[in-house]
Each structure stands twice: as structure tokens, then as C-alpha cells.
Amino acid sequence: MFLKPSLLAVALALFSGANAFSGKTCRIMPLGASITNGSGSSRGNGYRDDLYNFIQRDGNTVNLVGSQKAGDFHHPYNEGYPGAVLTEVNAHGQDAMPKYRPNVVTLLAGTNDAVFKIDPAGMPDRLYKIVDDILNWPWLTLVVVATLPPNGNPEANALVDSYNAAIPGVVQRFNDQGRWVVLADVRSVVEVGDLVDGTHPNDAAYERMGRKFYEAIQVGESRGWIADVYGPPPQLP
């Protein structure tokens, strides 16, 4: 059986992983709260080791950076602070940016604002400020903004759903300005049954989240949004 040329091209693209990229140096700073830190995963790595491996296996140099160390992976560095709300995540991110100068930031934040019902209506604006402050540093950075996993508390989960619905609009606002922001819809691959304690995903869900971040970074790379790293390798703790 022979495929028409157009169908053959599609088949080859699907087989070869058309969105994969290689030869890049990705200095990635995972930013957020306890989910970013890896709480709930059996080895404490969360999605970070999966993301690292997906990108590295394509033939890229990957360095995870941050002041926090969590898990047993050989690149344990991150900016995930358990219990942090959006304003605190922003403060931590601003402290870390000049130290680590990432060319990719993976951002997952807002769960604690929903759990503690901190000005739910203002959550999208606080997310916008985090991203805007990251992008205002002089070097070029791709920001990958994630939707939140669900929550086992029904009231918190309703706020999570409302916040998640607003996130694509936040990303689009930056895209309309020509700025380097992409969406990672991790909510689409995590269910309440995947949570070990009502908030934090299990290992299988974290792996799926890592793939969603990876796919979002592929989108950014396809748009030319992974810049050369700025400055020498940062000093890590």
C-alpha cells in the first residue's frame, strides 16, 4: 500500500516527532509553590525530572536553576516555595531572575490563593504581574504559564476552575504585545483521582505534567522564542 505524497509527509512528521528540537541550551527556572517543589511525588522531583529528560533526550543541553533543592534528581534546583501565594511567588521570582538568568521559566502558581480564597477575582491580574516582571528583565526569556491541577476541596476547585479559564486570556495579552509567553494546559492531564492529598499530584500525573510543559516549550521554540542563555552559568546552591 502506498501513501499519497501529502499523507506520507504527515505520517513521517508524526513518526519523527515534528515538534522536537535539538542543539539548544535551555536554562530553565521552575517557579511556583509546592507543586513546583515536587510535593506529593515519591522521590520529590515533581514534573521537573520528566521535563529535563524530555528536552535532554532530543539533543539539547538542559540546566535547571534556582535557590531551592528538592528531590533526588541530579538537577534538583527550582524556585518552588511550599505555601507561597501569587504575590510571594512574584517576589521570589524577582529575587531569582538576576541570579540565575533563565532563558525559560516554567510557572505554575495560584493554588494557595484558591485554597485560602485570597482575592479570587484578582488572581489573573496577579499572574499577569508575575509574567510581566519576568519579561521586563533585559535578557530574553520564554515564560511557560501552566493551568492548575484540580483540587479535592470543592470550594477551592471552583476557584481553580475560574482561574484556569482566565489563564489563556492572560497569555494572549502578552502574545498580542509580541512577547514570549506560551500556555501549558496541565489541567487537561490531571484529575482529582490523581492527587495524593487533595492538592498534590502523584508520580504518573507529574510525568504527564512534565510532558505538557515540554510540548509548550516546543511551541515556543517553533516560534523562535528560545534565546541564547545570558551570561555565564550561575552559581547554584
Results as ranks from 00 to 15, higher is better:
residue 51 L to K: 01
residue 148 L to V: 01
residue 26 C to I: 15
residue 5 P to L: 10
residue 44 G to F: 13
residue 82 P to K: 06
residue 51 L to F: 08
residue 116 F to D: 09
residue 211 R to Q: 11
residue 123 M to I: 15
residue 54 F to Q: 10
residue 212 K to P: 09
residue 205 A to R: 02
residue 172 Q to P: 00
residue 200 H to D: 07
residue 67 S to D: 11
residue 158 A to H: 00
residue 139 W to L: 12
residue 224 G to W: 11
residue 69 K to W: 01
residue 155 E to H: 04
residue 113 D to Y: 04
residue 6 S to P: 00
residue 64 L to S: 09
residue 104 V to S: 00
residue 202 N to V: 03
residue 194 D to G: 09
residue 193 G to A: 10
residue 88 E to L: 13
residue 87 T to R: 10
residue 175 N to R: 14
residue 43 R to A: 08
residue 199 T to V: 15
residue 148 L to E: 11
residue 94 Q to L: 14
residue 184 A to D: 05
residue 8 L to H: 05
residue 72 D to L: 10
residue 51 L to I: 08
residue 13 A to I: 12
residue 91 A to G: 04
residue 1 M to R: 09
residue 2 F to Q: 12
residue 111 T to I: 02
residue 3 L to A: 01
residue 52 Y to M: 07
residue 199 T to D: 01
residue 196 V to C: 08
residue 8 L to F: 13
residue 8 L to D: 12
residue 156 A to F: 04
residue 153 N to Y: 05
residue 37 N to V: 02
residue 134 I to H: 11
residue 72 D to M: 03
residue 136 N to D: 15
residue 62 V to E: 01
residue 19 N to Q: 08
residue 109 A to F: 05
residue 185 D to G: 02
residue 72 D to P: 00
residue 7 L to H: 12
residue 24 K to I: 12
residue 204 A to H: 03
residue 165 A to M: 10
residue 202 N to S: 05
residue 159 L to C: 03
residue 82 P to F: 14
residue 39 S to T: 15
residue 129 K to R: 12
residue 12 L to T: 10
residue 36 T to R: 03
residue 90 N to Q: 12
residue 195 L to F: 08
residue 209 M to C: 12
residue 164 N to V: 09
residue 236 L to I: 09
residue 39 S to G: 03
residue 194 D to N: 11
residue 150 P to G: 11
residue 95 D to Y: 14
residue 229 V to P: 07
residue 191 E to T: 05
residue 186 V to A: 06
residue 31 L to C: 12
residue 131 V to E: 11
residue 212 K to Y: 02
residue 47 Y to W: 14
residue 210 G to V: 13
residue 199 T to P: 07
residue 40 G to A: 00
residue 196 V to A: 06
residue 163 Y to G: 03
residue 19 N to V: 08
residue 4 K to A: 09
residue 127 L to R: 05
residue 209 M to D: 01
residue 224 G to R: 04
residue 25 T to A: 06
residue 70 A to Y: 03
residue 154 P to M: 13
residue 165 A to D: 04
residue 66 G to T: 08
residue 11 A to N: 09
residue 137 W to H: 11
residue 117 K to Q: 10
residue 95 D to G: 00
residue 137 W to Q: 11
residue 177 Q to H: 06
residue 21 F to P: 06
residue 113 D to K: 02
residue 99 K to I: 15
residue 199 T to G: 07
residue 174 F to R: 04
residue 201 P to S: 07
residue 17 G to P: 11
